[in-house]
Design a protein around this nucleic acid. Structure first.
Length: 264
DNA sequence: TGTGATGTTGAATG
DNA sequence: GCATTCAACATCAC
């Protein structure tokens, strides 16, 4: 479930379990998600190393190594971390695991294999190359507004573009549009300034709220769109019904009578 | 059995 | 060259 708040929770988990411990073994059970190294090369690079910290930008989590290099942990659609001691606690879809010198292991699970693990020697160069925009929770209002200028794409497409803004995924994008009362198919260029500011504020508010609850969605308010992503359900205030459409290439839920469309 | 899924990307198109 | 769209990726769960 990895969008910005979920990855933030993964980072916390990683920091609490896996820092300052020497990696004594690297077990690769499926090298498919290793993007720039073979299984054996990955093992060679990580063995006897220690994670000293981490850096998150959007949905990208970078583990800092004691040699100054980084390891990208990108969770794709179904990635997850699992820290455990007993070998039988290994999960069904573990793709690789680090064994630490304290006897515990950090497993990386990923049923769908859309995750990507990249060994990085020069982090700024890598971020530049992706390219990865500013983190959605750290970007300034001025920079957010500047990114919107001249965009002909849909609002949803804009929010999902990690090169403009890093961290917003399909569900949070819908939530932001919903709470800001803007139709996700609106043309960015046609959205008035005050509405753009509202989008920025809602984005930060929603993401921060989720981060504060460690992305535990059961603690989210009942009136959040997430709780009822369902076609035909009544919209808020008894206005219209929820609709479903493909916008920005992704399944999108919205209420056309509640969310204003801006276009040409 | 068919369908859709919290993400990214490279090729195609404008 | 740049912005945008879209199929493809691999697999599971309903």
């Amino acid at each position: 479930m990895p969008e910005l708040p979920e990855v933030n929770t993964f980072q916390r988990y990683f920091d609490e379990t896996s820092l300052q411990q020497k990696i004594v073994e690297v077990e690769v059970s499926d090298e498919k998600i290793l993007r720039n190294l073979s299984g054996p090369a990955f093992r060679d690079r990580l063995i006897n190393r220690t994670f000293t910290g981490s850096y998150r930008r959007g949905k990208y989590l970078f583990g800092e190594l004691d040699n100054g290099h980084h390891l990208l942990l990108h969770f794709g659609m179904t990635g997850d971390l699992n820290y455990y001691q007993a070998p039988e606690d290994r999960t069904r879809f573990e793709r690789f695991a680090f064994h630490f010198n304290n006897g515990f292991r950090l497993g990386f699970d990923d049923p769908r294999k859309f995750a990507r693990i990249v060994y990085i020697e020069d982090l700024p160069a890598y971020i530049d190359e992706v390219p990865l925009g500013e983190d959605a929770l750290r970007i300034s209002e001025a920079d957010f507004l500047a990114k919107m200028i001249g965009r002909k794409t849909s609002l949803k497409g804009f929010l999902l573009n990690q090169g403009h803004l890093a961290g917003v995924g399909n569900l949070y994008a819908d939530e932001i549009c919903f709470q800001a009362r803007v139709h996700p198919g609106s043309v960015v260029d046609a959205i008035p300034d005050e509405v753009r500011v509202r989008l920025f504020q809602k984005m930060q508010e929603i993401l921060q709220y989720a981060v504060d609850r460690q992305a535990y969605y059961k603690e989210y308010p009942e009136d959040w769109l997430w709780q009822w992503r369902e076609e035909g359900r009544p919209g808020p205030d008894g206005i219209g019904v929820m609709e479903r459409a493909t916008i920005g290439g992704r399944t999108t839920y919205f209420c056309a009578d509640y969310q204003v469309f801006y276009g040409h």
